[in-house]
């Protein structure tokens, strides 16, 4: 269970990006966070695994308080939090297998990492997961030879290699074409069910949020102003979340789509 309470993040001395935010995610649900650019979605996600330092407040994952961890303790906690990125963040010059195994870096020694002597179990798990998402035949290819959708599959497998207790996805489909993007969303939903894994997805595409997630959280100016089942996201709620933003116009076609 992920429990965020009274979370504040302020960059420098300006207006806080996150304002006393509370959010609880239980069980193996897929939760999407929507909101216009600058609403604080990315910052929220990055506060959870501390790529961004929260200013104040508390975040606990299965009863571990994350906000005060340092050094080795922080790394141990991060191992339990998988992350999928918008730009994939694969190491282009390494093979797909090395990229996938980099999800295990928090578990294996630096020497083993340097010499690429991965534990047998890790290699087996890597092949199973790659098989599951359909990229096993690329194991020896360099990551930059793959297409966008395949690269994001590598990103997902890398995160799953951590045996995470929660998966964070920061705009995982924003760099992909519509069809591939739906495939990745479907994959994230199915994997969540199969692995009994809670998944938290930042997403711009409201249609995909409704289609593939169990719960939608709407953010505006650093606050959560909507938190409900996808069915409950009506035009009025959309207007509140996106009022006066370009994303509202894009989501205009939503009524026909759903």
């Amino acid at each position: 269970m992920l429990k965020i309470s009274d979370l504040v993040k302020r960059y420098g001395g300006g207006e806080p990006v996150l304002k006393n935010l509370d959010l609880t995610i239980e069980g193996e649900s897929v939760v999407s966070i929507i909101g216009s650019s600058g609403a604080g979605k990315s910052t929220l996600l990055r506060c959870i695994n501390r790529l961004v330092e929260p200013t104040s407040g508390s975040i606990t994952l299965n009863d571990t308080e994350l906000t005060r961890l340092r050094g080795a303790e922080l790394r141990r906690a991060r191992r339990k939090i998988g992350m999928v990125f918008q730009g994939f963040n694969l190491v282009d010059r390494l093979t797909v297998m090395e990229n996938v195994q980099s999800g295990r870096l928090g578990y294996i020694s630096t020497w083993a990492a340097l010499t690429r002597r991965y534990p047998k179990d890790d290699i087996r798990r890597a092949y199973e997961l790659m098989e599951r998402v359909g990229i096993a035949h690329y194991a020896d290819k360099r990551a930059d030879e793959l297409s966008g959708g395949e690269r994001q599959r590598v990103g997902v497998v890398r995160a799953l290699m951590q045996k995470p207790e929660i998966l964070l996805a920061d705009e995982p489909t924003a760099s992909l074409d519509p069809k591939t993007s739906e495939q990745i969303m479907g994959l994230l939903r199915d994997l969540s069910r199969e692995l009994k894994l809670p998944v938290l997805i930042n997403i711009h595409n409201v249609h995909e949020a409704r289609e593939y997630t169990d719960r939608i959280v709407g953010m505006r100016y650093g606050r959560i102003i909507f938190d409900d089942l996808p069915q409950a996201l009506d035009q009025e709620a959309m207007d509140r979340i996106y009022s006066g933003s370009p994303a509202a116009d894009r989501a205009g076609g939503l009524k026909e789509a759903s």
């Binding site: 790529l51 080795a72 339990k80 994939f88 694969l90 282009d92 980099s102 870096l105």
Partner: peptide, 15 residues
């Protein structure tokens, strides 16, 4: 971004 990905996986500094 690539560094961020390793950090997010809890990788130690040298790795």
């Amino acid at each position: 971004g690539q560094v961020e990905a390793m950090r997010a996986a809890g990788a130690p500094y040298l790795s």
